[in-house]
């Protein structure tokens, strides 16, 4: 028992160190490759040790191949635009499914869930046609529009609302508060963890999306990060600029990574998952 108490934590630390080393290896390599002067395939280029004089040439080339400032801006607009609209639509729909009783509710709920499976990449051509009909082709709004409703988010919000005891609302209702005031002042604050969970899912998904933006966007002024990155990841005839690719990947993930590192503790801890817990 005694032994257990001292050894077990040490073992745990050792095990987790080993795991995180394995997990970090691709990033370490990316970091090394991005500063390595000779990045096309010298025998030792897989090495994770800094055995070279670092160069910024790869970053320079990556930055030259596209307007990264613009890509960051566009991607941020897309991600925030999608999330902003989604938070409204899923809160409203979640409330309707959780608290209102109306004919056809079951049917509508199933109809919502159908969307879970039908991501735009699976339906490129019909969705693109719709985007053109709406006049949104080659615009950031066209990248966002298909995601404005979210079955997943609606489901999550419905769960969260169902998990909140009705006493609060009833008290507010007796005081004569209208439904929207109840949602805004009572339900949403209590459902914050579910909102945070959904925000993580939404932001990471759309920050990293490639195929759909590639289809919708033509104008270089509307390019997003992943399309910019594709300049060096999607070459066709066998040449690979590993160093530039590594530098570009770091540039793409930097903003999210920095945000995560900065808010990691608050983020994970405040995020008590009552939306799921109920």
């Amino acid at each position: 028992m005694r032994l257990d108490r001292h050894i077990a934590p040490a073992l745990l630390v050792a095990a987790m160190t080993a795991v995180s080393t394995v997990w970090a290896a691709p990033f370490l390599w990316t970091l090394m490759a991005s500063f390595r002067p000779d990045s096309f395939g010298a025998a030792g280029m897989a090495s994770l040790l800094p055995d070279f004089a670092p160069t910024l040439a790869n970053f320079r080339l990556a930055l030259e191949s596209g307007d990264f400032g613009l890509y960051y801006l566009n991607t941020t607009i897309v991600v925030i635009g999608i999330l902003g609209v989604q938070l409204v639509t899923i809160s409203l729909a979640g409330y309707a499914f959780a608290r209102l009783r109306f004919p056809g509710r079951d049917f509508l709920f199933y109809a919502f869930l159908l969307q879970l499976m039908l991501v735009p990449p699976a339906l490129i051509v019909p969705n693109l046609r719709t985007i053109v009909d709406l006049g949104l082709y080659d615009s950031l709004a066209g990248v966002m529009a298909p995601y404005f409703a979210s079955a997943f988010g609606t489901f999550l919000m419905r769960q969260a609302f169902l998990g909140i005891p009705r006493d609060f609302e009833e008290a507010a209702a007796i005081d004569g508060a209208p439904w929207w005031a109840i949602v805004w002042h009572v339900l949403l604050p209590m459902a914050r963890p579910a909102l945070v969970a959904f925000a993580i899912v939404s932001v990471t998904a759309h920050w990293n999306e490639f195929l759909w933006p590639l289809m919708v966007i033509n104008d270089p002024a509307n390019h997003t990060l992943t399309i910019g990155l594709a300049t060096f990841t999607r070459g066709a005839e066998g040449a690979k600029e590993w160093g530039v690719l590594a530098a570009g990947t770091l540039l793409v993930m930097a903003p999210l990574a920095i945000t995560f590192v900065a808010f990691q503790r608050r983020f994970v801890e405040s995020f008590v998952f009552s939306g799921i817990k109920g």
Partner: peptide, 10 residues
């Protein structure tokens, strides 16, 4: 945090 396209290239 890495786009799948980029992860795949790495």
């Amino acid at each position: 945090l890495v786009p799948l396209v980029a992860a795949a290239s790495l």
